[in-house]
């Protein structure tokens, strides 16, 4: 057994491009799933059953089935009707998946903000919506932060799965390089190291965010 990392060096520009794609997808999905998750949570908590029940059904469905199955369904299913680029399917698929997980957290934290807060705000003369926006949601958001950042750390690792539907992130671009160089071990080890570094940075970011948010809870 001999290791030769020179092919990895040769393909470094391609690999870095894949890292860039991974990071961009991560950013897009974070924005989509955090904002979307909050909206879904609010709608499913404060609307009639006709609206809230289907929404809760989809949250439940996304949480009880594997990501890859959902991706296949979106990719081959929706791809039947309209032609959309894989990257869009990937971001939407991952985005919906984690939107469901984040909504689940927001529902719990919104509920956990005490009814005393609601009453205090209403007694000051704030309306229902104003109370929601100025009093309830900010508190719920800070309470959700630890689990939210956990979800995002897990999400970034799941970006690797998008290679299965042909999106050019790290794993996918390496698969091409591997088919030419026959060096799977070296490439996958490199990817694992890059992911580990991203993970370490995200964990550092998580504890930074939590320190800053701690006294707002």
């Amino acid at each position: 057994m001999e290791f030769d990392f020179s092919p990895v060096i040769d393909y470094l520009p391609t690999l870095l491009q894949g890292v860039g794609v991974t990071l961009l997808i991560g950013l897009a999905v974070t924005v989509m799933s955090v904002i979307g998750g909050q909206i879904v949570a609010v709608i499913s908590l404060y609307t009639r059953k006709v609206v809230s029940w289907p929404l809760r059904f989809f949250i439940w469905l996304f949480m009880t089935t594997p990501l890859l199955l959902q991706l296949y369904f979106l990719y081959f299913g929706i791809g039947e009707w309209i032609l959309i680029p894989a990257i869009v399917v990937g971001v939407l698929g991952l985005g919906f998946h984690y939107m469901a997980y984040n909504a689940d957290i927001f529902i719990a934290t919104i509920r956990s903000v005490s009814s005393g807060q609601y009453e205090a705000s209403r007694s000051l003369g704030f309306g229902h919506l104003a109370t929601l926006f100025y009093v309830i949601l900010p508190q719920a958001f800070y309470r959700a932060l630890p689990q939210l950042s956990n979800n995002m750390i897990i999400m970034v690792k799941d970006i690797s799965v998008l290679s299965a539907i042909g999106i050019g992130e790290m794993v996918y671009v390496s698969q091409y390089a591997i088919s030419v160089t026959f060096r799977p071990f070296e490439f996958y080890i490199t990817i694992a190291v890059i992911y580990y570094l991203i993970n370490l940075m995200m964990e550092a970011g998580q504890s930074w965010i939590e320190r800053r948010a701690a006294y707002r809870r």
Binding site: K157, D158, I159, S160, V161, V171, Y188, I191, A192, Y195, Y196, N199, L200, E203
Partner: peptide, 8 residues
């Protein structure tokens, strides 16, 4: 825990 299961 810091690397994707898929990559492993």
């Amino acid at each position: 825990r810091g690397t994707p299961y898929f990559v492993q």
